[in-house]
């Protein structure tokens, strides 16, 4: 018979007493501040932009005023979206392929130290080549079309995820490993019951970075020899001194990148529930 019992968990809502209500009000105020202040900050910068362009009589082909950009966004929305679509496909495709490859290779590295020693430095080296330098090489290799852009996006995502995933798979506490040993767990069980889960916070912090870098990779891939896509549009608008279109295009690209990031973060919050830092 258990003689002592830890306090049972609180299941009923506590009675709302004044102190409690005050605390909740403070919490709501804080949350509102966190949403409203950034909006106010953004609006004030927009105003500064508008005022500078108007007061200094900046020529429209050098920098457009915000309302011209808004107009362009509205008027040419269909065209912008038609160009965002291929970029989005390339970014998401590259993201999936690059990260999938990175996770697979990380798994291999953790299980075969020889392979890690042989190929990890090479991976570091390849990754240190700047994207702008890598892009022409890949374009030559893969030809024109969707494939090279997907490849660039994939390669850009690949390395940070590889490094983080290797670290994540190895970041198992020694005591947890000893526990698995005492339980006579097989290597396979250690991987699926222990390593994979403890690597997830590491994986997601890499994926969140990869969401924006994959977009960058797709756009840079479109800079050279491409007719459609956000990258191609950026190049065209720049050559035509169409600053309003340039700004509108960049806005579309960034909006996509932010959205991509937020989706990954949402998935992270649903999957990694145990990490106090993430769950909070």
């Amino acid at each position: 018979m258990p003689t002592m019992q830890a306090a049972a968990p609180v299941t009923a809502e506590p009675q709302a007493d004044p102190a409690d209500r005050a605390e909740r009000a403070a919490l709501i105020r804080e949350r509102a501040r966190r949403i409203l202040l950034p909006i106010a900050g953004g609006l004030s910068l927009l105003f500064v932009w508008w005022a500078l362009v108007a007061l200094l009589h900046v020529k429209p082909f050098i920098a457009p005023s915000p309302e011209v950009v808004a107009h362009t966004l509205y008027d040419r929305f269909g065209m912008l979206m038609a160009n965002l679509l291929p970029t989005a496909i390339e970014a998401v495709g590259g993201f999936i392929i690059g990260n999938f490859g990175a996770v697979l290779l990380a798994t291999l590295f953790v299980h075969r130290r020889t392979v890690e020693l042989a190929f990890f430095p090479v991976a570091v080296l390849i990754n240190s080549i700047p994207v702008v330098a890598k892009a022409p090489i890949l374009l030559l290799l893969l030809g024109n079309g969707l494939a090279p852009k997907v490849a660039i996006a994939a390669i850009i995502c690949f390395f940070p995820t590889l490094v983080n995933m290797v670290r994540g798979l190895q970041a198992v506490s020694p005591q947890a490993m000893e526990l698995m040993h005492v339980l006579s767990a097989s290597k396979r069980e250690v991987f699926f019951k222990l390593r994979l889960q403890s690597s997830l916070p590491f994986l997601f912090s890499a994926l969140k970075i990869a969401a924006s870098t994959a977009t960058v990779g797709a756009i840079v891939g479109e800079w050279i020899g491409s007719q459609v896509g956000i990258g191609a549009l950026i190049v065209q608008a720049t050559y035509n001194f169409d600053s309003a279109l340039l700004y509108a295009t960049v806005l579309c690209g960034s909006a996509f990148s932010v959205l991509f990031f937020l989706v990954i973060r949402l998935i992270e919050r649903l999957v990694v529930r145990w990490d106090a830092g993430v769950a909070a």
Partner: peptide
């Protein structure tokens, strides 16, 4: 292997997920 040994570690070593 016969599971005759239970081990309790200093930091509990629970799997957080």
């Amino acid at each position: 292997r016969a599971r005759q040994i239970g081990f309790v570690f200093q930091d509990a070593a629970l799997l957080p997920w």
